[in-house]
Structures are given as C-alpha cells and as structure tokens.
Amino acid sequence: MAPDHVTRRAVLQGGGAAMALPGVAGAETGAMLSPESNRGRDMSTVEFTVNGDRVQLQLDPRTTLLDALREHLQLTGTKKGCDHGQCGACTVLVEGQRINSCLTLAVMHEGDSVTTIEGLGTPKNLHPMQRAFVTHDGYQCGYCTPGQICSAVAVLGEIEAGIPSHATEDLEHVVLSDAELRERMSGNICRCAAYPNIIAAIREVAAGDEA
C-alpha cells in the first residue's frame, strides 16, 4: 500500500517525468512548459483575466494557455488529455466562447477574459451544470468532466444565440434536441462513455433555463 503522504497527483507527475526521460531532448520536445523549464529563455509578458482575477505572467512563448493555467496559475481543474485538440479535456471559455486551451498560446490572449471550471462554481456553490452532472452521474473517472461541463455551458449559449450545427435541419431555426446536443458535444471524448447521462444533465439545465 502507498504511504499516506503520496498523493495521486504526485504519482502521476512522477510517472510523467519518468516517461519524458529516455530519448527526448527535454524542454524542446516536452509536452509541458512549467516555470522551472522556462529559466534562461526569451520570455514574453502577457496579462489576462482568469475567473475574474487579473493575472500577469512572464512566459516562454511556447507555453500553451492550458500549461499557463495548470503549471503557472495552479488551476489544475482544466485537464490535459491528448494535448492535440482531439479530446476536449482542456476546454475553457475565452471571452465566453469554448476553445481547446491546448491549441492556443497563452501570449495570444493579452487582455482576454478566461473562465475555467474553477470559475464556474465552487464545491459549496456549484454551477447548475456541475450540480446536474452530479445528479445524473454524468461521469465515471471524472477526468474529462471539467472540459465536458465548460463545453456544455457554452453549448447552451450557442443554441440560445441561434448558432446552427451539423444536426440542425433548418439553418434559420435552431431547436434543442438530443441529436443537437450529441453533435455539439462531439469534441469532448469520455473514455468511460458517460454520454447518455451527460445528455440528461445538459437537458435538465436547459429545461431549468426555460422555466
């Protein structure tokens, strides 16, 4: 059994470091740019707002928004899955729009307003979407969940704004349906396949918004 002081996070970080060692050239290929790996490089300054707080960072320009949030601001709610824009675990809201934070550089967000899962709600004051995911068991391992929830909040906003999707029959008339939600959530992969419960959670919040 693992000693009490060994947390799951520490084990995961240790494992990640060990995997990065053989055969690759450290920071130049490394998947993550932490404050330590930035020493001695040309740095860029960027200032933006995260969950309502103004932050200023000195960053290696290679730092993605995802790594800036997790490694520099310790906002580890946003997850790194594939790091290539395929899984959606890193989804955050920038200026109210959902994007993959792994596929954008932090320095490209000067003046922007970023909302992460930590900014949507807190354990004591859950966002309605967070509460609905709990109620409907919209997850199993939970790793994709922050991205799913950020995406789901934005999806309801997109439908509200009348933005069509591939599932929309009449481009001029967007109607909320399970088919619409499934299509719009297709950029968020859930390895545990909690999809039916995720749809149920989003539908509950949508119904609440209408009421």
Binding site: G88, R98, I99, N100, S151, P164, H166, E172, G187, N188
Partner: peptide, 22 residues
C-alpha cells in the same frame, strides 16, 4: 445561411465546436 447555405453546411460538418470557435 441565407445566400450561401452550402458554405454554412460545409463549415458545420468540419471539426468540433471548440475548434470552429478558433
């Protein structure tokens, strides 16, 4: 949407919501 619907349809058939926003 009104005058070039084939373009709307093609765009919406590509990528994911997150990617299309960027």
């Amino acid at each position: 949407r009104r005058d070039y619907a084939v373009l709307s349809r093609a765009l919406l058939a590509g990528a994911s919501g997150q990617l299309r926003n960027k």
